[in-house]
């Protein structure tokens, strides 16, 4: 899997109320949620992004609420992945569970600028900044989480686990 896209820069502590305001949570329809992604931060974000674009943020991305609607809105908006210095823990779990790729990389957060084109090689843990001709490293994911991602998220992983247990017993 290779991910390629243009950078949208965000700062530290981008909370889930910014990602998807609670006033839109009377639905869990991904299309409707995507329409309001990042609306209170940049109301034109959703109009201006192209499929495959990448969010690059600072520390503690996704802090606040447990709403899975946040990674769902980002994914459905067409964002290919989120790169941040660090993630808040519930957002981290939710993104992995629903299959939104996320990468921890201080180097990218510091080096990449708005509009830069990035290419990501997840297996190698490398991010290439095509615009600036730089290479950044990402923190490797634990094996268990790599397996979750490879299974296609927690739902698929659990289905396989349940089948495996039924065979064992």
């Amino acid at each position: 899997m290779i991910i390629k896209g243009k950078v949208w820069k965000f700062g530290d502590h981008i909370d889930t109320d910014i990602i998807i305001p609670a006033r839109y949570l009377n639905t869990s329809d991904p299309n409707e949620l995507a329409l309001h992604c990042m609306e209170d931060y940049d109301k034109d974000f959703i109009k201006n992004i192209s499929p495959g674009d990448i969010i690059v943020a600072g520390d503690n991305f996704g802090c606040g609420s447990s709403r899975e609607h946040a990674p769902i809105a980002i994914k459905e908006a067409g964002v290919s992945c989120v790169i941040a210095k660090s993630f808040a823990r519930i957002f981290f779990r939710n993104a992995i569970n629903i299959g939104l790729p996320i990468f921890e990389s201080s180097e990218t957060s510091l080096g990449a600028l708005q509009g830069d084109e990035l290419e990501i090689f997840p297996e190698k843990g490398i991010i290439k900044n095509i615009t600036q001709n730089e290479l950044y490293n990402t923190n490797p994911m634990p094996i268990f989480i790599q397996n979750l991602i490879a299974s296609g998220g927690l739902v698929e992983y659990t289905k396989k686990e349940i089948e495996r247990r039924q065979i064992e017993y």
């Binding site: 519930i90 779990r93 659990t158």
Partner: peptide, 18 residues
């Protein structure tokens, strides 16, 4: 511990969490 909906949906089925 707070989790998201997928974790919760799986836990409702299995009684387990990672």
């Amino acid at each position: 511990i707070g989790v998201g909906s997928t974790d919760l949906g799986v836990a409702m089925a299995t009684g387990e969490v990672w």
